[in-house]
Amino acid sequence: MLVRQALLAGIAALVSGSVQAEDQAAGLQAEIENWAQSRAFNGVILFDGDQDVRYVHGTADPETDRPLTMDTRFQTGSVEKYFAAITVFALVEQGVLDLDAPISDYLPDYRADTGSAVTLRDLLTNRSGLPNDMVNAFRRIASGEAERVDAMSSTQAVTEFASGDLNQVPGEVFDYVLVNWLLVQHVVERASGMSYPEARQDFVFTRAGMSQSGGYIHDLGSTEPHVLDVAIGFDPADANGQGDYWTPQWFKGSYTTARDLQRLERALDDGDVLNPDSLGEFRSVQVPDSRYAYGGRFSTWELCGEQFTVSTQAGSNGASNMISAYLPARRIGAAMTTNVDTSQGQMFEFAHRLFEIELGCG
């Protein structure tokens, strides 16, 4: 009799837990739909908790009216820096790179005074002290020199746009400039003997099971080989407002999906991408005022009265925007991708709201 009562009690608890989980998922779904519809959100939202909650609405390509899907690929913008930093850390694990070695160890043809002073750690934390000379590349492109700039090798581009006189002492001042990441990509290629896209594929996308992520040349819409189901940035209020920036072939961009953003965070937690010691360093904040670690930010959020460290990654390219928030302590996350410019701050605020609902205090 006692065994039967215990069995029935266990079944009742399971049923009750299942009902609560379903109710919570329904509440999250309603919250997401209300938020998205009130803002005419054109994009994809994925909340990855006890149960997946998904939302997708809008246009992927305004010229063809092709609709968005859960598998639509979006340009990553600055989330590419996160991928690049992971690639570097994986090569550090293999003994190919050293965060604190001068970059002249890997780039013997780079200017000696700067190369001996700047380290990979400086580049990955945006504290190299280098000037933002990449702006000169885009000025030349805008003035009609796109073909000439595009024809440069990566070595020529580094010499032209990433070899200026230092503005600051390396390691001291945070400055979010693209030249750091041109140099990171170049160091990876020279030290590993692989192209940067190959290294990123091997050490990030493949290890993390990110099957819907990859790289592109110039822009995602016209890259070769052609990528299916891509989002093209646009402004609904402006018929000529398509806006994803074109980049020269020597500066490698990437694309991903909301699902792959969360796959990466879970794979990092599971040790599939970096070993535990590397992961601990990778997630350690190096620039407290900016909450910046290596290639990305880790913020402190108050959730249900407790303080938590949250991986808060964001990127944009023209009209395309994305954010990813992941809470390692609870293995829950939210990813939002859009090809119509949307405030990253608002998206993070909403992710915070979803976390509190999931944790039971929202």
Score class of each variant (00 low, 15 high):
residue 35 W to C: 05
residue 36 A to R: 02
residue 36 A to M: 01
residue 36 A to H: 03
residue 37 Q to D: 13
residue 37 Q to N: 15
residue 37 Q to E: 15
residue 38 S to E: 15
residue 39 R to E: 08
residue 39 R to A: 09
residue 40 A to S: 14
residue 40 A to H: 13
residue 40 A to L: 13
residue 41 F to T: 09
residue 41 F to S: 04
residue 41 F to E: 05
residue 42 N to V: 09
residue 42 N to P: 06
residue 43 G to V: 10
residue 43 G to N: 05
residue 43 G to L: 09
residue 44 V to K: 04
residue 45 I to K: 07
residue 46 L to R: 04
residue 46 L to W: 03
residue 47 F to V: 14
residue 47 F to E: 15
residue 47 F to W: 09
residue 48 D to W: 07
residue 48 D to I: 07
residue 52 D to W: 10
residue 52 D to C: 00
residue 52 D to H: 08
residue 52 D to A: 03
residue 53 V to T: 13
residue 55 Y to P: 04
residue 55 Y to N: 00
residue 56 V to Y: 11
residue 57 H to N: 13
residue 57 H to I: 00
residue 57 H to A: 04
residue 59 T to Q: 07
residue 59 T to F: 01
residue 60 A to G: 08
residue 60 A to M: 05
residue 61 D to F: 01
residue 61 D to N: 15
residue 62 P to N: 02
residue 63 E to W: 04
residue 63 E to A: 07
residue 64 T to V: 07
residue 64 T to D: 06
residue 65 D to N: 14
residue 66 R to H: 10
residue 67 P to H: 10
residue 68 L to D: 03
residue 68 L to G: 01
residue 68 L to T: 02
residue 69 T to P: 06
residue 69 T to K: 06
residue 70 M to T: 12
residue 70 M to E: 15
residue 70 M to A: 12
residue 71 D to Y: 03
residue 72 T to W: 01
residue 72 T to Y: 02
residue 72 T to Q: 06
residue 73 R to K: 15
residue 74 F to V: 03
residue 75 Q to L: 10
residue 76 T to L: 13
residue 78 S to F: 13
residue 78 S to P: 08
residue 78 S to I: 11
residue 79 V to P: 08
residue 79 V to E: 14
residue 79 V to W: 02
residue 81 K to A: 09
residue 81 K to I: 11
residue 82 Y to I: 03
residue 83 F to P: 09
residue 83 F to Q: 06
residue 84 A to R: 06
residue 84 A to T: 15
residue 85 A to V: 12
residue 85 A to L: 11
residue 85 A to G: 08
residue 85 A to E: 10
residue 87 T to Q: 02
residue 87 T to C: 10
residue 87 T to H: 10
residue 87 T to M: 06
residue 88 V to T: 09
residue 89 F to W: 12
residue 90 A to D: 11
residue 91 L to C: 00
residue 91 L to D: 03
residue 91 L to F: 14
residue 93 E to P: 00
residue 94 Q to S: 12
residue 94 Q to F: 05
residue 95 G to A: 13
residue 95 G to P: 11
residue 96 V to H: 03
residue 96 V to G: 01
residue 96 V to K: 00
residue 97 L to N: 08
residue 97 L to V: 10
residue 98 D to Q: 12
residue 98 D to N: 13
residue 98 D to R: 11
residue 98 D to H: 05
residue 98 D to K: 07
residue 99 L to D: 10
residue 99 L to Y: 12
residue 100 D to T: 14
residue 100 D to Y: 09
residue 102 P to V: 03
residue 103 I to Y: 03
residue 103 I to N: 03
residue 103 I to K: 02
residue 103 I to L: 12
residue 104 S to L: 14
residue 104 S to Y: 15
residue 104 S to I: 15
residue 104 S to P: 01
residue 105 D to W: 09
residue 107 L to A: 06
residue 107 L to E: 05
residue 109 D to S: 11
residue 111 R to F: 06
residue 111 R to M: 07
residue 112 A to T: 15
residue 112 A to W: 14
residue 113 D to Y: 05
residue 113 D to P: 02
residue 113 D to W: 08
residue 113 D to T: 13
residue 114 T to A: 14
residue 114 T to D: 08
residue 115 G to Y: 13
residue 115 G to K: 12
residue 117 A to F: 12
residue 117 A to P: 05
residue 118 V to Q: 01
residue 118 V to M: 05
residue 118 V to F: 04
residue 118 V to N: 02
residue 118 V to S: 00
